[in-house]
Design a protein around this nucleic acid. Structure first.
Length: 212
DNA sequence: AACTCGGGGCA
DNA sequence: TGCCCAGAGTT
């Protein structure tokens, strides 16, 4: 039995939507600024750490203008609870200052402008562009890349090609959900080393040859 | 293209 | 206890 990519997409959305919680970033973060900062902080950190931290952080400085004039030590102490605390504390402060100086305190809706901010690479830029500005781009991290290729949604070695491949086949309204679902599926089930294919809800539609 | 970064999680 | 992680940045 083989499935078209379109059939797989529908199947995945239903199956993963059942087992993973809804993506909540857009609900928690009520501005592009907060989404941007939270996404920078989220790299290499756990969701739990970031949720706890941003709650406190955005109490103190909810927007770029406020953060840009906040005592660096205050930010450093707040950020200390998660990975790369020194770099990240420095980065988000520098980001807020640059936003104030060059973009009137607002988050720019362009890839080049976003990627010029410290701590913001392609993936983080794409999260902001798709989530806050509804642009048709797909954030691709290693999980999304690996899972998409194993299932057979795309066949590519470069994450950048996965990005363009996925955006062609995933309906625009589903992009944010898909990023979330594929990320969690890659982290917890379709792991790089020991994928847990037995019991995987995508087993029936997956191309991965090494099903245990 | 390969390496580094810092600390959490897990074998 | 020691290996792995997962993005961004640097060389």
């Amino acid at each position: 039995m083989s499935f078209s990519v379109e059939e797989k997409i529908g199947f995945i959305r239903t199956a993963l939507g059942r087992i993973y919680p809804e993506p909540k970033s857009e609900l928690i973060y009520d501005s592009p600024f907060q989404l941007l900062i939270a996404t920078i902080l989220a790299a290499q950190a756990t969701d739990r750490q970031v949720n706890i931290l941003t709650k406190k952080l955005f109490d103190v400085c909810p927007d770029a203008t406020t953060m840009s004039v906040t005592d660096p030590e205050t930010i450093r102490d707040l950020v200390r609870s998660i990975n790369y605390c020194n770099n990240k504390a420095k980065n988000i402060l520098a980001v807020s200052k640059k936003l104030v100086e060059e973009y009137e305190g607002e988050v720019p809706a362009s890839r080049d402008a976003l990627e010029s901010l410290p701590g913001v690479g392609r993936k983080t830029a794409n999260v902001v562009l798709s989530n806050a500005f509804r642009q048709p781009v797909m954030p691709v991290d290693t999980h999304v890349h690996r899972v998409s290729n194993r299932i057979g949604l795309v066949k590519t070695s470069k994450p950048e090609d996965t990005e363009t491949g996925l955006i062609k086949v995933i309906p625009e309204a589903w992009v944010i959900d898909f990023h979330h679902y594929l990320l969690l599926h890659g982290r917890y089930t379709c792991k790089a080393k020991k994928p847990e294919c037995q019991g995987c809800v995508l087993r029936d539609i997956c191309d991965y040859p090494d099903k245990n």
